[in-house]
Structure formats: C-alpha cells, structure tokens
Design a protein around this nucleic acid. Structure first.
Length: 926
RNA sequence: GCCCGGGUGGUGGAACUGGUAGACACGCAGGACUUAAAAUCCUGUGGCCAUUGCGGCCGUGCGGGUUCAAUUCCCGCCCCGGGUACCA
C-alpha cells in the first residue's frame, strides 16, 4: 500500500501539536472569524460517527477562512456537569468528577484522531471552578438587576430601591411578579426582611413559589424544555406538577427582544419558527367581567380574562375558569358546592400527564354564578373546566363557541348557546375561527372587519375602564435550581429565611464533598450532607445546584478569554472577537440552550459586559446521523440462517447483527460465528455467489441495535481524511441521513488516486516543473471556483464530488505539474488536512499548508471559446450543435435551421419560432 | 389539529435566478492483468420497446395548470420526517 494514512496522520497531528499551529490570539491587523461547535456532554459511550459531522463541517470552514486570511477562533470544550455522571455516582459511588475526567480524556483522544484545528489552549470545562466562578458571577449580577419596561433593559437594583424610597412602586413599570402597591412612606416603614421580599419580585434571578415539573425518579425539578409529553427528556421518567420554592430566571422579561432579535440573525427559518412558537407571543386584551350578586362589592368581584379576539365579545355565551383559579371557592353558589368540589377533586389530583392523555375528553362544572357582559349587561354562566389552563393568561376565558373550536365542542357537549358574530362560517358543522369576515349581531361593531373590530373593542373597553390591550407570552421564567449534586453551587446564603448573594470576591464557591449523592433523610438535596456548608458568618448556603443550561449559557464568551481570572472576558478580547460568526449544532437545543444563552447574552449586553446583542450571527443545524442496522434471518426453530435474497422461501425471524462484521451488506461468516457463542455452530443458506447477504433498516444509532459505528474503527481502516471526506460526501449537512459505510471505498479510492498523481509506480515523488498546459489550468481553475462557491454555501458534499472530478480529469491528462498540484493541495487541505500536509511537503513547500494563501480563481482560464448548445425541438432535447461563444442569437438562429441534422428532425414541418438562450440552449418550435 | 422541512435510478445523492434530469460515488454486469485472489485499470448501467444499424416512447410522490421549455412556478391531493399541542 503506497498511501500510508496511519503514519501520515500521526505525523501531522504531532506536528500541529508541537508547533501550536492552531493557537490564536487577538490580532488587530487581521479580520477575525469565530467558528463554534456546540460543545459536547462527555458521555461514557464515547463519540460515535454521528457526533463529528458538525465538527468536521466547522473544521473545514475554519481552515478555509484561515486560508482566506482570517484570524480564526475555533475552540472546543466540555459541558461537563450533568445527570448521567451523577446517576453513575449513585450506583457505583465513584465521584462524578472522576467519571467526567475519564470521559473527557476519551473524547479528546477521539477528537485528536480526526485532526481538528481547535485551539486547545482555550478549552473550557463547565465543572472547573475557574470556569463556574463566572457562571456564579453572572447569577449574582442577575440577582442584582431588575428589568425596566421603560428602558427595555436590565437596570441595577439600586435604581429600583431609590425609586421605592421616593415614590414606592406605584410608577414602576417593571417585569415583575405579582406585588401589591405601596407608597414611599410604606416602603420606608418596612423591615429589611419585608423589603427584601418585595425586591425578590423584581430581580432577574429570583426565589419564589411556583408550579414546577417535579421528577420523583430524578429527585429534582426540571425546566419546561427538559420535559416532553410529561416525561423527563433525560431518562424518560414521569414528571408531575407541584408547587415548590425555587430559583427562577426572569427570561420572560426578554420575550419581546428574544423574538425581535431573530430578525437580525442568519438562522434557518424552521429554527426561528420553533423559537417564535416557544416564546408564543400573542396580542389581545384583558377584559373584566363583573360577577352578579358578588358577596363583596369592592375587590374580587370580577373575573379577568385574556383574549386575542376581543372583537367576538358579543358572541360570548358563557365563561370558564381553570380549576386552580383563585375565585373558584368564592364564586361557587352554595347549592353547587358539592358538584363543584367533586369536580375539583377529580381534576386536581390528575397529573399533567393524565390531563394530556385525556386530550379532548370534555369535562366541566357549572358554578351557579353568572358574570355580567360589559356591553349588553346580559348574564353569562360561569363554568369550571380543565380545558382552561391556570398558567396561561389570567386562567379564565370568555367563551365564544361560534368562533373558537374548543369553546364550540364544550358548548355542544353541555348544550350552551352559540351566537354567531363574524360571518363566513357554517355553525352547524363547527366554529369559524378564521380572522376573516364581517361583524354581525354586535351592536357598535356591526359591519366592521375583524382587525378594525378588535381595535374598536379595545378602545371602548378602555373608555369604560373595563379592559386594556395586553400582550401575552407562552414563555415562562426558567426554573433554575436542581436538587442534585453535580452542578454549580448557588452563591447564595440565607439569613432569617431571606436569600442573599455572596460578594464577587468570595467566588468561586466550590462544590463541596459529600458522603453520598442521594438526598438526605430529611429530603434535602445532596448538598445537605456537606460539612460546614455555610458562610464564614455561619449562615446556611443554598442546597440546590444550577441546571445544565447554566454552564452552557456563556461558554462562547469565555472562549474569547478563557484564562482571565479577573473578568468573565476582557473588554479588549470581547471587542475583538465580538460574537460567534458561525455556530454549528443540533436542532434539539432550539428551545433550551439557544433561548437561554440568547437571554444571558442580552443581559450581559445590557450591563455592558459584552458588545453584541445577539451571540450567534449564523447558525447551521447539522442533520442527525441515524443508524443503519443489519439483519440475519434465522429459520424458525433451527440454527440455520438464510440469506436475504432467499428468506421469503422460509419462515424466519430477523435478528440484529453487529454492523461491524458486515461489509456492503455481506456478512463475515467467521466473525459472526465468533461474535456470540450462540452462533458458533450456525449454518447458512447462501446466495448463488456464495455470500450471505444481510437485510437492513434505518433506526436510531444505539448499542442495543448493534448499529453503532465508532469513528476510531473507521480511522483505523481508512484513515481520518477518508472519514472526514466521507461524512461530508454522505449528503447535505442539514439533512438527516443514515450512516452507511457502503460508499466509503469510493472516497478512499479518491485519496489513493490523488496520491498517485504525485508519485510514479515505485511510489517515488515524481513532479514536473514546467508551465502547466491550458487544459490543466482550465481544470484547476474550474475546481477553485467550484470549491470556493460550495464552501461559502456549506455544500460540502458537492465539493467532494468536484475534487473527484478534478482528480479524475488530471489523472486522464497524467498531470504531475507542481503548480497545478500545489493549488489542488491547498483547496483540499480543509477537507483532508493530513494528506494535504504530506503532499505539501512532497511539493517541497515550507511549513504547514494551513498557512498557505487560498488560490485565486482566474476566469481567463475557464472561458470556453466554443459552446456546445443542446438543441431541443418542441422542448425535447434532440442533439447538440457547437457554436463559437461570441455568436449572437441571430447568427445562431440563422445557422441552426440550415443544420442537416436539425432538418432531419424537422421533416419539413414549418418552424414557428426559435428560442436561443445565449450560452444555454436552443429550442425550435414547429 | 396547527407550523416548518422533504418525496429524483437498485442505493447515497447532483442539477446556477425555469434551460441537456440522474453529475460524483456505491452496487451490479462484462472485460484486462493474475496460476488464483486481492488491488488496479477499462466498458456498460433510469425503465420499457427495438436491437442489424438508426432509433422510439415513458420518466423527478399523484392529478391539473402556466410556459417555447417545469425536479424548479401556481392550484388541489397523498406520503414521510421534525416542532408544537386544550396557550383563549
């Protein structure tokens, strides 16, 4: 074998490491470019071939940008806190730090073998105190700020205190929890404890009772994005709703900016759409409905509803409040007490999961009370039903069955009236939810279209003091505490039950040792076991730790200045690197990390720690690599296995077989017999050609399905350059696709043919030093243009094809011209860096190819003098005719009808029209 | 249900703003080299018909439409993948 990839790859990996080839620093003389991968959680299983897909793409782009003269920041690190290491610790007693350290070494080893150009001197680990010091620091800053809706940004809490001292909270327009009104004198009269409790309502990191997702199996609460369909995403354990005191981040304050910012970033539409839906902004109105015969005349005598369709107010025929609504007890009429109580018992004991499972089973109970319609004064029965959610809007609705499908089904079920107020639907078959049509049966709104009616209704409500315009969000504040061990400790202590944050100088607050990773007997989190877990003054420290997204929310900032002990990032480093120019990672982070880190970044922007409002300018979601499983077919009740082509003649059971002992769907029978003792005596019914052919299926890549392919194995067999090229060759980056090794030989063959261009039959370098021929120049310049265009649009699969075409063509010309091959090597080096370095050396060049300038495309070499025009007759391509490139349409038209071959096709039919698209096609219409 | 993607040979996929559909590669078939195999190289390879040579017809999920020309644009449907789901 001439192309010794194993030797070459080891050689250059050592070279890069020794020469620190990819180490970067701020260099004002060069334009910067920041390329980031989503850093991995180092799991015990190591990397499989799916993981590096995005890393390879970003590596290619980084190396390309470097050739183009950019100072490229391309770092890597580890999202090292997390549940699996802790679960493992619970089972085995091994400290999660050790598990994590081991897994990181394994990841690093695997990544090094692929030949990435990371600047490893900038590596970060979220579990390192030198790193999480800054996670804690940001938390303290969040605690010390509030969000002003006046300025639209975070403001120091001192400004709020000043305001309270002067005016109380009556004029404050803040993103806050529910807080009673007070004046300046009242504020001054409050105890410190009372004042602190008030301030908690305003802080961006706050401590409050809230409805949380409690996961008993994991012993912790989870954020909304960590739960799907009522189960935890990590581990798949059931999750229930519970009220608990927890730390939260006031992400909702930034809802508008998080939506608006999406217009300024270059992300895929689908990802933007996911974020928009998750934030769920809806414009509408809050409307007050008075309750008839309310026992109290002042407060609590009305129901507040939120609606996006105030225009349909005249179609309201009843009201619904959520079972958890605070007015439930108050408004229930005595004679309805008992049915209401039993309904409440029935629904409130249900978990979130059960409610979801029973989607669309309609249930509800009349309270016996009536609300008063604000315009007609009519009586509207008030119902309780679980189809109204306590947590959204006001937890109460005005039901308009004619124009809301949920209200419609409810009304039909309980025989409530339906009043049409927007024309256009057929109420016999269903509700008319569309915002189209003309208002009817609606007093002062009659004749208006929906949009004007909405405006007019709000205006009238405001006049009467019965309502106002309101924007609602689906996005909730993020629950930020976890009752777990392996995470960042909160820099928080409690005095008199009130939380206070540590001073910045006291950071990092280092995670203490514990004797066990389980909750204490009192049910406290594991940190309850730590000795002396209190401040120097003796105040107890917080026992929860931070969630997974804490450490990943600002890691891209830390990479800019990873060893700075005095600041999260220096202003100088931040102003140079600014923000991430290209971010590549999976779409699964759309509603978690990518929301939280945008929120953190905006906060840091408001407080002038960073200089860019959005952290990730361009973002690409690489597709998932799925597994491709192989099957053998055992004939029932025998130990005979029949090949795929013949299996239909027997009754068989398909059995998963390790894909690593199958090549191009052909089973390695010896290895199969050795794979598992169960198969040692297996007999086979083979195809006519003597092979055993396996069946296949596309499934998740998973150990249990025996379809996991480890990049190390591929590298051992083919080399890292082949792996890199093949992962790109598989298809478009964004598309999900199965890992199928069937085509890898072709890519490897390409590298061997490339090698041969530089060598004679005896594998000695053999180059020519003259001027390249025009054919050679045409080929290389065509390739320069194509590769460059492809990289700019992240179409790496077509680049690989272009390289193959180039090498095929140069091989046909027996080209070994040094100038041509030098350009080719630079073009290829982002994709296959090891072989490129080796060939660069063979070409007699100094230093690393990664420092070479990118070849310039010169159009003079690629212009064609003669163009081959496809000629179609009535749109069907029939033949090809050559014309000089500078002939104009008229000349071509005149020539083409004289062409013998064309005349043959025309068979004398009269020509109606000739269309000539210059440089493209000729179409003759007869 | 709603919102995004996507359906092209045996397979992965290619096709610039409407302009030669199937590039490149795998697989397969045949051949060269070899005692043989591997490796390498050459030829063919969407389907159907014709095959003595020319060739002809069909074909990008399905059905319509616009156009000289449609994988590409428009309308209606089917299927697959992802997100989200009583969010008023």
């Amino acid at each position: 074998m001439e192309y010794k990839f194993a030797e070459i790859e080891a050689k250059w990996q050592k070279y890069w490491d020794k020469n620190q080839t990819f180490r970067v620093s701020e260099d004002p003389g060069k334009p910067k470019f920041y390329v980031l991968d989503m850093f991995p959680y180092p799991s015990g299983a190591g990397l499989h071939v799916g993981h590096p897909l995005g890393y390879i793409a970003s590596d290619i782009y980084s190396r390309y940008k470097r050739h183009k003269g950019f100072n490229v920041l391309h770092p890597m690190g580890y999202d090292a806190f997390g549940l699996p290491a802790e679960q493992y610790a619970i089972q085995t007693g091994q400290h999660p730090a050790i598990t994590t350290e081991n897994n990181i070494s394994r990841y690093r080893e695997q990544m090094d073998k692929i030949g990435f150009c990371y600047d490893w001197s900038r590596e970060v680990r979220t579990c390192d105190p030198g790193y999480y010091k800054w996670t804690q620091w940001v938390f303290i800053r969040l605690f010390r700020h509030w969000f002003s809706k006046e300025t639209g940004k975070a403001e120091p809490i001192e400004t709020l205190i000043e305001e309270f001292e002067r005016y109380g909270n009556t004029r404050v327009n803040a993103a806050s929890g529910k807080c009673p009104r007070f004046g300046a004198t009242e504020w001054m009269a409050m105890s410190e404890k009372e004042q602190q409790l008030i301030l908690l309502n305003y802080r961006l990191a706050y401590y409050a009772d809230s409805m949380v997702n409690w996961c008993p199996a994991l012993g912790t609460v989870l954020a909304n994005d960590e739960v799907k369909d009522g189960f935890s995403i990590r581990g798949g354990h059931p999750v229930e709703q519970k009220v608990m005191k927890q730390w939260l981040l006031r992400v909702s304050a930034y809802a508008d900016r998080l939506i608006d910012g999406l217009d300024t970033v270059d992300w895929s539409d689908s990802l933007k759409e996911i974020q928009k839906n998750w934030i769920g902004r809806s414009e509408g109105a809050v409307i007050k409905f008075e309750i008839e015969n309310s026992p109290e005349s002042d407060t609590g005598s009305f129901i507040e509803v939120f609606t996006t369709r105030p225009d349909t107010i005249f179609g309201t025929t009843y009201m619904v409040i959520a079972p958890e609504h605070k007015l439930v007890q108050k408004i229930t009429a005595p004679e309805y007490r008992s049915p209401v109580d039993s309904y409440l018992q029935e629904t409130l004991k249900k978990t979130e999961r059960e409610r979801m499972a029973e989607t669309r089973t309609i249930s509800g109970q009349f309270t016996g009370s009536y609300a008063i319609h604000p315009f007609t004064g009519g009586k509207l029965p008030v119902w309780i039903s679980d189809y109204v959610l306590a947590g959204y809007g006001t937890g109460a609705i005005m039901a308009v069955p004619a124009h809301d499908s949920r209200d419609y089904s409810f009304a039909k079920h309980f025989n409530l009236p339906v009043t049409e107020v927007v024309s256009g639907g057929d109420l016999a078959t269903g509700s008319w939810d569309a915002k189209e049509g003309v208002l009817i049966n609606s007093d002062f709104l009659n004749g208006l279209d929906v949009d004007s009616a909405i405006k007019k209704t709000i205006l009238k409500l405001e006049e009467k003091g019965l309502g106002f315009k309101k924007i609602n969000y689906r996005l909730r504040d993020a629950i930020f505490s976890r009752q777990r061990y392996w995470g960042e400790p909160f820099p928080v202590y409690y005095r008199d039950g009130i939380p206070y944050v540590l001073k910045e100088e006291e950071l990092p607050l280092v995670l203490p040792e514990v004797d066990s990773y389980l909750p204490t007997e009192k049910g406290e989190p594991p940190l309850g076991r730590a000795k002396d877990w209190k401040t120097a003054e003796g105040y107890p420290l917080e026992l929860s730790t931070m969630p997974g997204f804490a450490g990943s929310s600002a890691y891209y900032i830390r990479y800019m200045d990873p060893n700075n002990d005095n600041e999260l990032v220096s202003a100088e480093a931040n102003r140079y690197w600014r923000s991430v120019d290209l971010y590549i990672g999976g779409t699964e982070h759309a509603t978690g990390h990518l929301i939280y880190s945008r929120f953190w970044n905006k906060f840091l922007y408001d407080t002038e720690v960073v200089c860019e409002d959005e952290p990730f300018r361009k973002l690409i979601n690489q597709g998932m690599i799925q597994g491709r499983s192989n099957f053998v077919y055992r004939i029932i009740n025998t130990s005979k296995y029949v090949s795929h082509g013949l299996k239909d003649n027997y009754e068989v059971t398909p059995i998963h077989v390790d894909v690593n002992i199958v090549h191009n769907d052909i089973l390695d029978i010896d290895r199969f017999r050795k794979w598992n003792p169960e198969y040692s005596k297996a007999e086979f019914i083979l195809e006519d050609d003597g092979t055993y052919r396996c069946g296949y299926a596309i499934e998740k890549m998973s150990k249990s399905l025996y379809n996991v392919v480890n990049p190390d194995d591929i590298i051992e067999q083919y080399g890292a350059d082949t792996l890199r090229l093949y992962e790109m060759f598989l298809g478009p980056l964004e598309q999900s696709k199965p890992w199928d090794t069937n085509g890898i030989d072709g890519v490897h063959k390409f590298l061997r043919r490339l090698w041969k261009l530089f060598h004679n039959e005896k594998n000695q370098p053999d180059l020519s030093y003259g001027d390249p021929s025009s054919d050679e120049l045409r080929i290389i310049h065509k390739t320069i243009r194509k590769i460059q265009e492809d990289i700019e649009k992240f179409s790496f699969n077509t680049s690989v094809s272009a390289f193959m075409i180039c090498v095929n063509e140069l091989t046909a010309l027996k080209c070994n011209n040094r100038r041509i091959l030098s350009d080719l090597v630079v073009l290829l080096s982002p994709f296959a860096p090891h072989i490129s370095e080796e060939l660069w050396e063979i070409l007699g060049k100094e230093g690393s190819v990664s420092n070479a300038g990118y070849p310039e495309h010169d159009p003079r070499f690629t212009v064609e003098n003669i163009i081959q025009y496809p000629v179609s007759i009535n749109g069907k391509t029939r033949l090809k005719v050559e014309f000089p490139a500078d002939s104009d349409s008229e000349e071509i038209e005149n020539e083409i009808i004289k062409n013998n071959a064309v005349l043959k096709y025309l068979k004398g039919s009269p020509v109606k029209r000739i269309i000539v698209v210059k440089g493209r096609i000729i179409n003759i219409v007869v």
